[in-house]
């Protein structure tokens, strides 16, 4: 044993660690030298390196990470997977299209706490909101919202019922204001897959994105 074998100690420990986390290892053996184990280079360059791992969808309460498995009643609770089996699917949120589910009469949630015969007060009015950026304009449909909610849930505390009175932007929504009071918490969340649910009206014909000030005043053009 000499100094050269001493240098191998951290390398060996690293090798052992990598072997445990089941990464394939590359064995480099120079003639006459001791064997060194290094992680295969390609493993560092995978796709979606910084994305969260695909979660298991709608897991039963004992497996969901917020219910306590030491609690016996956790095992009595219904599994969402079982409850959602017959409902239309989406790619985000609960992975259930709740609006479609009541439109197709697959669900009939009560409008009144006690009386299951009472019908919601549905108002069919679309509000179009032009958007500065090049994404399609927003259409807000009252119908889908009044299927679930009462006027006083949104008006006037969250939205002033008057044209041009509500400044809405995506930052506010992502921070849980305006539409974000529900969207991103209970109703469908803001993901790339759901943009077009709101941004659904194509720009008028001939619409071009406004040029930025810096481009208009560009001294080098």
């Amino acid at each position: 044993m000499n100094l050269s074998s001493l240098k191998c100690v951290p390398v060996l420990a690293l090798g052992a660690l990598l072997a445990i986390v089941a990464l394939p290892v590359q064995v480099i053996a120079a003639e006459g030298a001791e064997t060194l184990q290094l992680a295969a280079v390609s493993q560092a360059n995978t796709f979606n390196r910084n994305l969260k791992k695909e979660k298991s969808r709608n897991p039963p309460p004992p497996e969901d990470g917020i219910h306590d498995v030491e609690n016996e009643a956790t095992f009595i609770l219904q599994s969402p997977r079982e409850a959602f089996a017959e409902l239309p699917k989406t790619a985000f949120g609960n992975y259930v299209d709740w609006v479609k589910a009541i439109d197709q009469k697959l669900l009939r949630p009560r409008w009144d706490r006690l009386n299951s015969a009472e019908e919601p007060f549905v108002m069919d009015l679309d509000i179009v909101r032009p958007v500065k950026a090049s994404v399609p304009d927003v259409v807000f449909p009252h119908r889908q919202h009044t299927e679930w909610l009462f006027c006083s849930n949104c008006h006037p505390a969250i939205f002033i019922p008057q044209k041009g009175a509500n400044q809405i932007n995506m930052s506010a929504i992502l921070l849980g204001r305006k539409c974000g009071v529900c969207h991103g918490k209970v109703s469908f969340p803001i993901t790339t897959k759901s943009c077009r649910k709101c941004h659904s009206k194509p720009k008028p014909k001939g619409w071009k994105p406004p040029l930025s000030e810096a481009t208009l005043r560009n001294p080098w053009k």
Partner: peptide
């Protein structure tokens, strides 16, 4: 233990209005 409220279970049975307005 802290209480866990599952929105999904309740919205199958009730519209938002029942709890959030009434």
């Amino acid at each position: 233990r802290p209480a866990v409220f599952p929105h999904w279970f309740h919205r199958i049975r009730f519209r938002c209005k029942v709890c959030h307005a009434d």
